[in-house]
C-alpha cells in the first residue's frame, strides 16, 4: 500500500488519527487491502502528508488492537491474516455506526418521524 492512498483532511472536525483508522477499516473490510499486505511505515505516512508521526502511530496502534493490523517481526505493520472475511455481522454493523448516528441526528433536526426514513433506507438497500 502506498502512503498517498490515504486521504488526510487536516481541517475536518474529525481528528487525523480517526481519519486514518476509519480508512484502514474500510479498505480492509472492502478487501482493497488484502491480508498480509504491508503498510507504509509511520515515517512514510507522516512525510507524505506532513503530519505528526505520533498521530500515525496512534492510528496504527488502534488498528492493531482492533485486530485489523499485525506488527511484523522485523519492523512495520501488515494487514492481519484474519481481516475482512471473518468479520461478524455485528462487527460490520459497528463500521456503519458513525454514519447511522449522523443520519439519525439529521432526521431529528428535521423533526422527521422514523417511518418514512426507514422506508427510504430499505429502498436504498434494495429491499
Amino acid at each position: 500500500m502506498d502512503a498517498t492512498l490515504l486521504t488526510i483532511r487536516p481541517s475536518a472536525p474529525e481528528p487525523i488519527y480517526r481519519q486514518i483508522l476509519e480508512q484502514l477499516r474500510r479498505l480492509i473490510a472492502a478487501g482493497q487491502l488484502a491480508p498480509g499486505e504491508r503498510l507504509p511505515s509511520v515515517r512514510e505516512v507522516a512525510a507524505a502528508h506532513a503530519i505528526n508521526p505520533m498521530t500515525v502511530s496512534r492510528a496504527y496502534g488502534l488498528a492493531e488492537s482492533e485486530g485489523l493490523l499485525e506488527r511484523l517481526r522485523g519492523r512495520g505493520m501488515a494487514v492481519a491474516a484474519q481481516g475482512a472475511r471473518t468479520r461478524s455481522q455485528s462487527e460490520r454493523l459497528a463500521l456503519l455506526e458513525p454514519s447511522l448516528q449522523a443520519l439519525a441526528r439529521q432526521a431529528q433536526e428535521l423533526e422527521m418521524a422514523a417511518e418514512p426514513v426507514l422506508r427510504r433506507l430499505a429502498k436504498l438497500l434494495g429491499e
Partner: peptide
C-alpha cells in the same frame, strides 16, 4: 514536514 518528523 520537517517540524513533524523532527518532533516525532
Amino acid at each position: 514536514r520537517e517540524v513533524a518528523l523532527r518532533a516525532g
